[in-house]
Nucleic acid binder design. Structure first.
Length: 425
RNA sequence: GCGGUUGUGGUGAAGUUGGUUAACACACUGGAUUGUGGCUCCAGCAUUUCGCGAGUUCGAGUCUCGUCAACCGCCCCA
């Protein structure tokens, strides 16, 4: 048992300049959501396990990856995703009560937990931003959701993002298609890989995603979902596509795109970099869903939403050089020399009160060291006080850009600093 | 859950067939310059220490095993 005091696998400390990346991203997201009329909702980080462990999940794999623990009689689970908690809250607070306020447009942002094998951009504690528009069903709402995600990607400076979009149709269409797929692949089962055999039973839609088999002959002629959509599903999808066209959002119909879980219907989408190679590439992904609100007892209301992995967004944006960390800086640096007691601190505090960012030395380091620190902080003004200045309540004020220096009385320091900073702009 | 690569100061890293004092550089600290920085020069900076633990050996950063972690691929991706 080694290194007891290190972060658990798949978690990380965010420190130094990295934190500023997160703050920038969070700010962009909040601003965009406000423009689109989405309000923040903050739900607990853990919920009763039943909230996440919904019935009829086609993959019971996922529950194996949940952080579940018992306290007293309760089985609780750290949230592995955002949607379920939001829907639970929507129902619990009867947000469906006033039809005039539907859809409720909500967004969430925060840590999620999944016990997976970590890889780059994939952690056990990771952060997701997501939106849910609950209580109305419209192609327009779907398009708006995609537009919001696309806008945020653009504001983060991500280039060459395209939307993969597909329609799973309504339940009837989907069931017909599922049966058709099973029917179609039945004679080819011998040719398919082991994983596809499992998918054949559990989730035939996923067979089309298979990396091993996808180039095989029998895949080329596999039935497509679009041939199984009924009339209303087709109309719905056509309007979504028209909306994307009209808003100038680049998209591509991908009839192999299926989401993992059963509750999705009609529109599903996934934003990926145009040159995406791996499967880890999705920038944000989501879709329209029926039945989820009803599952939590809120009646027959639909929703649409997406989730966005922030670690991945930040990685991409940094790689593409569109997001830079904020370096530490201060307007003013106060250098103290000799025994000046608290005089340097007084000046620092007075200037901070006046609204400037001010740093100082706390360790009585050498003059050279203090100058170096002020350089590192990119300070525009350096104030130097020694025993003489302390005695007659003055200070040396140095304009770093002009390399000029003057003696200034304590009472006029703030004004002098202000003039120098103004002159530098 | 499965397979693979890797792990040396604050950072980037060198380290020969196991051999005695773990190179070099950056950063940092002090000095040359008793109160004026960025250049230069000098000095210091891993000290039972090479992720952690055990083993082989006269001797292990180098070999073996275990363990932890990061990364890559698979599974999965709510």
């Amino acid at each position: 048992m080694a290194n007891k005091y290190q972060v658990p696998r798949g978690t990380q400390d965010f420190l130094g300049e990295t934190v500023s990346l997160w703050q920038k991203v969070e700010t962009i997201i909040r601003e965009e959501c406000a423009r689109y009329g989405y309000s923040e909702i903050r739900t607990p980080i853990f919920e009763h396990t039943e909230v996440f462990k919904t019935e009829n999940d086609s993959s019971d794999m996922v529950t194996k990856e949940m952080y579940t623990f018992n306290m007293g009689d309760s089985s609780l689970t750290l949230r592995p995703e955002g949607t379920k908690g939001v829907i639970r809250s929507f129902v619990e607070h009867k947000m469906y009560g006033n039809p005039a306020e539907l859809p409720q447009k909500l967004y969430y942002m925060g840590p999620m937990f999944r016990h997976e094998r970590p890889q780059k951009g994939r952690y056990r504690q990771f952060h997701q931003f997501g939106i849910e528009a609950i209580g109305a069903k419209s192609p327009l709402l779907d398009v708006e959701a995609i537009a919001l995600g696309y806008d945020i990607s653009k504001k983060l400076g991500l280039k060459n993002i395209k939307i993969l979009v597909n329609s799973l149709g309504d339940e009837e269409s989907r069931n017909n298609y599922r049966n058709a797929l099973r029917e179609y692949f039945k004679p080819y089962l011998d040719e398919l890989c082991e994983d596809c055999h499992r998918r054949y039973e559990q989730n035939p839609l996923r067979i089309l995603d298979c990396k091993i088999d996808k180039d095989k002959e029998c895949f080329r002629n596999a039935p497509s979902i679009k041939d199984y959509l009924n009339e209303s599903s087709k109309e719905y999808f056509a309007l979504v596509l028209k909306g994307l066209d009209d808003l100038g959002i680049p998209y591509e119909i991908d009839d192999h795109l299926v989401r993992g879980l059963d509750y999705y219907s009609n529109t599903v989408f996934e934003a990926v970099p145009v040159d995406a190679t791996g499967q880890q590439a999705a920038v944000f992904a989501g879709g329209q869903y029926d039945g989820l609100v009803n599952y939590f007892g809120g009646g027959d209301l639909p929703g649409v939403g997406f989730g966005m992995g922030l670690e991945r967004m930040i990685n991409l944006a940094v790689e593409q050089n569109s997001l830079q960390p904020e370096t530490r800086h201060s307007d003013v640096y106060v250098i103290s020399l000799g025994n000046v007691s608290t005089y340097g601190l007084q000046i620092t505090q007075m200037l901070r009160d006046a609204g400037y960012s001010v740093e100082m030395d706390y360790q009585g380091r050498s003059l050279k060291a203090q100058f170096k620190t002020s350089d590192r902080l990119n300070s525009k003004v350096i104030i130097i006080v020694g025993e003489d200045e302390c005695g007659n309540k003055t200070a040396q004020v140095k304009d770093v850009a002009n390399k000029t220096q003057e003696t200034v009385e304590f009472a006029r320091l703030s004004e002098t600093v202000g003039n120098i900073l103004k002159g530098n702009e």
